[in-house]
Simulated scan of single mutants.
Amino acid sequence: MMLIECPHCGPRDENEFRYGGQAGVSYRPEDTSDEEWAGYVFLRDNPKGWFHERWFHVHGCRTWFSVERHTLTHEIRKAP
């Protein structure tokens, strides 16, 4: 079980949150090819180590925020 620290509510159980995917993914322009668009929608980084993620506090303040999570140990720290 992970303990995620909400910037507004403090540390909470992971069941209160929903994963929002990789943080820092910029929006693609409208004039991209189908292949580029498919890559944008479906392909994300999957590193071993620290990874920037977005989380949504569903059962709390209903706020989106970013954290860094270590994908092997699930240690969580605030995003820079």
Rank of each mutant, 00 (worst) to 15 (best):
H70V: 06
P29T: 06
A38D: 04
N46E: 11
Y40W: 10
D34F: 12
C9K: 03
M2W: 13
D45V: 07
R69F: 11
L72V: 03
K78M: 08
D31H: 07
V67N: 04
C9L: 03
I4A: 13
F56G: 03
F42M: 15
E75D: 05
R54P: 00
P11A: 12
E53Q: 14
H8T: 11
H52N: 14
H74W: 08
F42T: 15
G49V: 08
C6K: 12
R18P: 01
V58L: 11
C9H: 05
N46L: 04
R28L: 09
Y19C: 02
R54F: 10
E36N: 04
T63V: 10
A23Q: 01
K78D: 12
A79W: 02
V25W: 01
T32A: 09
D13T: 11
Y27W: 07
S33A: 13
R44K: 13
I4Q: 15
E14P: 06
N15P: 06
G21K: 02
P7K: 14
V25K: 05
H59I: 11
V58D: 10
L3R: 15
G21S: 00
F51K: 08
E53D: 14
T32F: 09
V58F: 10
R69N: 11
G10N: 10
R54I: 06
S66Q: 04
P7L: 13
I76F: 00
S66E: 09
M1E: 13
N15M: 08
H52R: 15
P80D: 00
G20E: 02
G10D: 04
F65H: 03
R12K: 14
A38V: 04
G10C: 06
T32H: 06
H8Y: 12
V58E: 08
T71Y: 07
F56K: 05
L43G: 15
A79F: 05
H52I: 07
V67W: 03
H70F: 08
R69G: 07
E35V: 03
R54N: 08
C6E: 13
R28C: 06
H8C: 07
Y19H: 02
D31Y: 03
T71K: 01
D34Q: 11
R54C: 07
